[in-house]
């Protein structure tokens, strides 16, 4: 009896979290009229929304833009955050103040950064370019990545480095030959989180791009015209906006809580 109640509870929890996501998948195969009848479970599935999204709308281009910007900005973030995280973890650089200041950049209202950068980027010709967005996402993800990597570096025992130092290694070669192989798993987790955050980011993409570099999130909101909402194509857009992150999330499930809590909780 208690088992039954338990499984009913699990079913309710799963229903609440999964049903909306599953339902939007179902909806994407519905034609124009079926969409207005959400309870109609037996309907003729159609690919018209997919055809519309990929041939009439620039969804493919938007996905490519989002991918380019996410990947390159993540590489930049790692180049900045790996050495910095190591320095904070091993030498306590700046006695914690610098690390804390890095963290506070996350508290800035995005608008704080958006206003000045809008004018700066306009003067530099960076509006609606990939590079402009990459730089913004570097700023956006850097504090998070540094903090998470700091936690991973702290788990590497310092004795390893002392041993290497006795063997005559310099600091740089210690970092390259001993620390780096050990940080690869942590760095990979951090990188996937940066990719997810960059892919999901909306505000900067909305303000700083128009046509050339526009992202998936930007494309999503353009279905919402002043006259009609194109529900069907929007469902397709939503699916392709969330599919990559859902897949990443499934494989990362052991690390999601740790990542989102800036490494504070080792779930």
């Amino acid at each position: 009896m208690r088992r039954v109640i338990f499984w009913i509870g699990v079913a309710i929890i799963l229903f609440v979290f999964i049903f909306p996501i599953a339902w939007i998948f179902v909806t994407s195969f519905k034609g124009r009229t079926d969409i207005m009848v959400p309870t109609r479970l037996l309907f003729v599935p159609t690919l018209e929304n997919y055809v519309y999204e990929f041939w009439k709308m620039p969804l493919l281009k938007e996905m490519k833009n989002s991918a380019i910007v996410s990947v390159i900005s993540t590489i930049f973030v790692m180049a900045v955050s790996l050495p910095a995280g190591y320095s904070f973890a091993r030498f306590n650089t700046g006695e914690g103040h610098l690390l804390f200041f890095t963290l506070t950049t996350r508290m800035f209202p995005p608008v704080v950064a958006a206003i000045p950068f809008f004018f700066l980027f306009r003067d530099l010709g960076l509006l609606d370019t990939h590079l402009g967005l990459i730089l913004l996402y570097l700023y956006f993800n850097m504090s998070f990545a540094t903090f998470l990597l700091y936690g991973f570096f702290r788990e590497i025992p310092e004795e390893l480095e002392h041993a290497a130092m006795v063997d005559g290694y310099g600091r740089l070669s210690i970092f390259r030959k001993i620390i780096f192989p050990l940080i690869v798993p942590g760095a990979a987790i951090t990188a996937v989180f940066c990719l997810i955050f960059a892919w999901n980011e909306f505000f900067f993409g909305y303000i700083f791009t128009r046509t050339v570099a526009r992202t998936v999130s930007f494309g999503l909101i353009s279905h919402w015209g002043s006259v009609v909402v194109q529900w069907g194509p929007m469902a397709v857009g939503v699916i392709f906006a969330i599919l990559p992150t859902l897949i990443a999330g499934w494989f990362m499930q052991r690390f999601i809580v740790r990542g989102l809590s800036f490494g504070a909780i080792k779930g």
């Binding site: 799963l14 999964i18 996501i21 999901n200 909306f202 906006a241 859902l246 999330g249 499930q253 999601i256």
Partner: peptide, 14 residues
């Protein structure tokens, strides 16, 4: 567990 975590991955706008 994996299924319950999925909403966290959905972008706020989507």
């Amino acid at each position: 567990r994996g299924l319950c975590l999925l909403p966290l991955m959905v972008s706020p706008l989507a």
